[in-house]
Design a protein around this nucleic acid. Structure first.
Length: 715
DNA sequence: AAAACATACATTTTT
DNA sequence: TGTATGTTTT
């Protein structure tokens, strides 16, 4: 690429960011400011100034973003060879290369959520702890945040001084032990082990930071402490770190993302140059004005402006509906109108807070014959048949992977039942060998009769044969397993129910063939480690003529002409779990901000007055964010509820004045829920709400004009 | 050992 | 509400 070429295509500040080659650089860039463009051109500019591509490492937030960046740098005429990937993929690569130094085996399995849950349940059980007091999800969350803060088992054990921490420490220890026994790492381990390796092993650290002389990190606002450490270590030798991000778009706090990483960049790298990109090339001024109004309500924030460059467009629209079905049908109607106006379907996206909200949309779209695609986390890889197939591959790649082995040992049914497995497990435990080795020594297990022994021998023999065929390309092996394991036949026998499964496995096989062709040195271990980091979000096809449905989180980094954001109601957006924490509430606000700023031309916000939540038809409360956006949500008389008094809400016609105000901790009484304390009061004029924790344990957000809350004096 | 049934349980967002 | 696990039946 010639420098004149990007001269014409970049604004002055973008150009400045591109041409600042050496030393630490922070690019604070608002939405739609051409941030990705800057990184892409920067890679090209580095290569222009004769930096070798292999010395460049760019880190993106998703695989999808990495893929796009590769394509774009290629399009600029850049030779391929720059390492562009997510943090997790980079870590897999590093850990495999330096497995010995990291004290692991390079053929490790990567455990996902459900694998983790199994391990944590086992760990809790092994420690003799009641899972009712220490629920798996809670333990996993805590352990995850420990790992993200780089707190290993020993230091945690040392600092644990209360009952909860001490018990959790036991579980944490055993959990890590189980992972080691299975030769497995969880998602957090990938980051943690890499961070610790880089931090402790100066040889490895200097080798890698010499390999990656230029480090570029996108979406820096969403890095957690482990990722931060990795970045810092990798850049330690040369200081050539370029981070880009937008604190207002930080939406992954729950995953350990620490917004301070970006806010403190200038402290961490004292000679850092900071460039702000505040011009927005994506949205109309109308949309940006709304976005700014909303985000300004965040207190913990550096002031930033969004400068529109587009001409004035349509105002944002807010529509209310009776319930989620009406909402979906209403949107379908609007979309049909858009289609009549020659809008193409891939110019339309619908965002929601939680995946469950997609259901009513699907129904409405099927009814109206509108083509759509749902962008969801890991749908495909969560299918039973896919997980079964992958489990076979995992066992071959990593025989120590007991979870995978237990999954396939009797799938399809081959007469190796629970009692048999328990006997082998006991044998393996008493001889301190893995389950797989136990199966191999089945002849020595005296408690087993002849029939199960033979069945196990046949199974082991089958795996050994697969194993002999497991080097090089993965596709042929997968096909062989599908047939010879008996899985295909079991699906055929299941009739119409199994035909979907066969189709899905065929899709998997196709994907594996594609992997074989695209990869220089395809290998089973490599394929499995890559696939573990892949999600369906990465398969979104923007060229398809379909409407995109996704969560607000998945919308990050994308843009559409027409955006619908649905279910903007208290409890949903902001989500109820953020009600009692101001930081979390601010994150919810940022989430909506991200959604709003995806829209290029038309933004439609909707909410429903009633919504079915967990099977219950409940009156909703319009989101406080609507109020903050300056949107009048006063319902007209015809919209007021008449026959739904299900949740204790009612409308008192006599209260034409403003509802009473409350202070935090005010003791109150509610007709239905009884006594409670106000946790939070939201002054929204007529639409003010109070979040109350009742003695029943329920936490409710109540709209004060509908709900009679009696103030009780403290005794 | 598999299927049928019952009951508990959680239920945000994802690499 | 739906999933996921546990229990009973065949």
């Amino acid at each position: 690429m010639q420098s004149e070429q990007y001269d014409r295509q970049l604004t002055p500040s973008q150009k400045k960011a591109v041409s600042h080659i050496e030393g630490p650089l922070l690019v604070i860039a608002g939405p739609g400011s051409g941030k990705t463009r800057v990184i892409t051109y920067r890679i090209a500019a580095l290569i222009d100034s004769s930096v070798l591509p292999k010395n460049i490492c760019a880190i993106t937030f998703t695989n999808k973003a990495a893929e796009q960046m590769r394509q774009r740098t290629d399009a600029l005429g850049t030779p391929t060879g720059a390492h562009i990937s997510t943090f997790h993929s980079l870590c897999v690569r590093i850990l495999r290369q330096y497995a010995a130094q990291a004290n692991i085996k390079s053929n490790f399995s990567i455990y996902n959520d459900s694998d983790q849950t199994r391990c944590i349940k086992q760990a809790t059980k092994d420690c003799g702890i009641d899972k009712k007091n220490f629920p798996p999800s809670r333990c996993l969350n805590t352990i995850s945040s420990l790992k993200n803060s780089l707190i290993d088992t020993e230091p945690f054990e040392a600092q644990a001084d209360d009952f909860f921490s001490k018990t959790l420490s036991k579980i944490y220890n055993r959990y890590q032990q189980i992972l080691t026994e299975n030769n497995a790492l969880d998602f957090d381990d990938l980051l943690t082990k890499t961070a610790i390796l880089l931090h402790k092993n100066k040889t490895v650290c200097s080798q890698l930071s010499n390999r990656f002389k230029f480090l570029l990190i996108d979406e820096y606002q969403d890095t957690n402490h482990a990722q931060y450490t990795i970045a810092k270590e990798l850049a330690s030798a040369h200081n050539n770190i370029c981070a880009t991000g937008d604190p207002d778009q930080s939406i992954y706090r729950w995953r350990g993302a620490d917004i301070r990483n970006i806010l403190d960049f200038e402290n961490d790298w004292p000679d850092a140059v900071t460039i702000k990109l505040e011009e927005n090339f994506r949205s109309t001024p109308n949309i940006l004005e709304a976005a700014d109004k909303l985000i300004s309500k965040n207190k913990n924030r550096k002031q930033k402006v969004l400068i529109p460059t587009k001409p004035k467009g349509h105002d944002i629209s807010v529509t209310s509906f009776d319930d989620e079905h009406e909402e979906a049908l209403g949107i379908a109607d609007q979309i049909k109108k858009l289609i009549k106006q020659k809008t193409t379907l891939n110019d339309i996206a619908i965002f929601y807070r939680i995946n469950a909200q997609s259901r009513s949309l699907e129904e409405a779209f099927i009814k109206n014959k509108i083509p759509y695609q749902i962008i969801r986390g890991v749908e495909f890889y969560n299918r039973k048949e896919i997980r079964d197939m992958l489990a076979y591959l995992k066992v071959l790649a990593n025989p120590a992977d007991q979870i995978a082995l237990l999954r396939v040992i009797n799938t399809p049914a081959r007469g190796i039942g629970k009692t048999t497995i328990t006997k082998v497990l006991n044998f393996a435990a008493s001889h301190k060998i893995s389950l797989f080795d136990g199966l191999k020594k089945v002849e020595q297990i005296s408690s087993l009769s002849k029939a199960p022994k033979t069945k196990i021998a046949v199974f082991v023999n089958m795996l050994e044969q697969f194993k002999a065929d497991s080097s090089g390309k993965v596709g042929p092996l997968t096909e062989r397993i599908f047939i010879e394991s008996g899985l295909q036949n079991s699906f055929k026998a299941a009739g119409s129910e199994g035909s979907d499964a066969i189709e899905n496995v065929n899709e998997l096989i196709n994907a594996i063939h594609a992997y074989d062709q695209q990869t220089e040195e395809p290998s089973l271990v490599d394929y499995l480690q890559q696939i573990s980091l892949f999600s369906d979000t990465d398969t979104y096809d923007p060229s398809g003529q379909r409407i995109a449905l996704m969560t607000l989180h998945a919308a990050k980094g994308l843009e559409f002409e027409n955006v619908f954001i649905i279910g903007v109601e208290e409890g949903l957006l902001p989500h109820e779990r953020s009600a009692d924490d101001d930081d979390e509430l601010e994150e919810e606000r940022r989430l909506l901000f991200v959604g709003i700023t995806r829209a290029k031309a038309n933004l439609n916000i909707t909410y429903a007055r009633y919504r079915t939540i967990r099977g219950q038809f409940l009156r909703t409360i319009p989101s406080q964010f609507l109020f903050e956006l300056g949107i009048d949500i006063t319902p007209s008389d015809s919209e007021l509820p008449e026959d739904h008094h299900d949740d204790g809400y009612y409308y008192d016609e006599s209260t034409s004045q403003l509802p009473p105000q409350f202070k935090k901790n005010q003791l109150v009484r509610h007709e239905v829920f009884g006594l409670g304390r106000v946790q939070k009061y939201n002054d929204m004029g007529e639409n003010s709400t109070a979040t109350v924790k009742f003695n029943t344990g329920h936490i409710k957000t109540l709209m004060l004009k509908y709900t009679k809350l009696e103030k009780i004096k403290n005794l």
